[in-house]
Design a binder for these strands. Sequence first.
DNA 1: GCGCTTCATGCCATATTGTGGAACGCCGTG
DNA 2: CACGGCGTTCCACAATATGGCATGAAGCGC
Lengths: 247, 247
Amino acid sequence: MKSVTRSLRILEAVAQHQPVTVGELTKLFGLPKSTVQRTLVTLNEAGWLRANRKDTTRWEIGARVLAVRPAALQGSSLFAAAREPMIRLRDALNETIHLSVPDALHSMVVVDRVDCDHAVRTFHAIGDTSPLHATATGHAVLAHLPKSEVDEFATGTLEGYGEETITDPKELRTELRRVRERGYAVNHNQYLQGVCAIAAPVLDGDGVPLAAVAVSLPDSRFEPGRLAELGQVVTDTAAEITARHLR
Amino acid sequence: MKSVTRSLRILEAVAQHQPVTVGELTKLFGLPKSTVQRTLVTLNEAGWLRANRKDTTRWEIGARVLAVRPAALQGSSLFAAAREPMIRLRDALNETIHLSVPDALHSMVVVDRVDCDHAVRTFHAIGDTSPLHATATGHAVLAHLPKSEVDEFATGTLEGYGEETITDPKELRTELRRVRERGYAVNHNQYLQGVCAIAAPVLDGDGVPLAAVAVSLPDSRFEPGRLAELGQVVTDTAAEITARHLR
DNA sequence: GCGCTTCATGCCATATTGTGGAACGCCGTG
DNA sequence: CACGGCGTTCCACAATATGGCATGAAGCGC
């Protein structure tokens, strides 16, 4: 359904650029003015958008969006289970900690974050997405999916983002085996340059991967000699979240 | 745009009932199966929905929503301005405090909450909506809207939710005058039974109502003799939020 | 094990619905 | 005062979503 898909795209764009005008959005999407205009009015009538109070030609996200909460955040699930262990991990390492979940189409989405206090630190906003095949959290999740799902996903040539990105499905599969063996995934310059991340999966009772916790730090502070140690504490944290989540 | 409006309704219904099946949604909306099905698939492809991992015929909200959610909060810089005063108000009364904003369609939406520590307390989740004409926060906002907007809204018979709901537009208007005079609004059993709330508006520089702060408590703890006192502290808090928001 | 019901999913002719080019009206500027 | 930029409205056309029906899979009782 074309109009629905487009409306959601426009909604996301408004969230990114708010408060934004019709004209700015038409340029962004290359669509006819009237089409964008109509979409904005519809979204407004549904309460998902609203006109800015000061400048009524500018649009921003309406409060109605708050009524829609992802399953991953509901009640006492993951989100609540993860908070404390994440804070402890941050305290132990003084590096930024992320919780990410896989989404419908081959992305990891940042769901929660606990910041470190270094002046130089990595930054991913809540809601940011990154490709499954090129991030530590993505690998942590992929490594625990049924082979059939990985096969379906890892086909052809995967998109590259730099020298280090694994673009060959075969190579990806051997990397995933390594991740399973040692329990954690490592990403160094595969997606964002200058960033290093170490991630471990949070699993369901049945071994289904629900999310991944990661520590993320700038190149400049990464000491290869400490990798095993970091991998261990991240894995322990993920295990603790899993345990808390199950009970 | 019919399909867009309907898709958003369905999205909200999924959020409310997740994880939910196609059949349940068709009953809920009285729409043809194929229409609902198609909508779900479209929303899924956009990442806003996903199939439940255990039971793939059940749908739940996808993580993509998170890309938009934070914008709904930061959109109103109110959120930041209100936090501290709300916490102080909670500390003073040890009752639950809410911040709500009006949305496009005659509802108030809960935007933030600070909890008390009583075992028995009222509960409204962030994102919950309630009707403008039957809540304290709604009255606080309505009382400061231009008369034309109130007239447009308060027409015919308003929906009732119990004995106490004001359903007559005329009666509502006199109540709103009282709210303006004393500065705060009171709701006792108008919408939810057993709940009492006292709210005051947060205004713009131009006197336009942006939101309302409310203290909300169970019947059992409400002492009518303390109403004036409670009204005063809530009004003071609202005034403080207004002041912080302006500078 | 076999028919029966229930439910999700796929198909396709139809007309309803959204499309987008063009025109309008408002406002600030040269 | 004319011009250009911008948001908004209009309307004939056809692309698009619709929903009744058919299919297929899964659960249940006999």
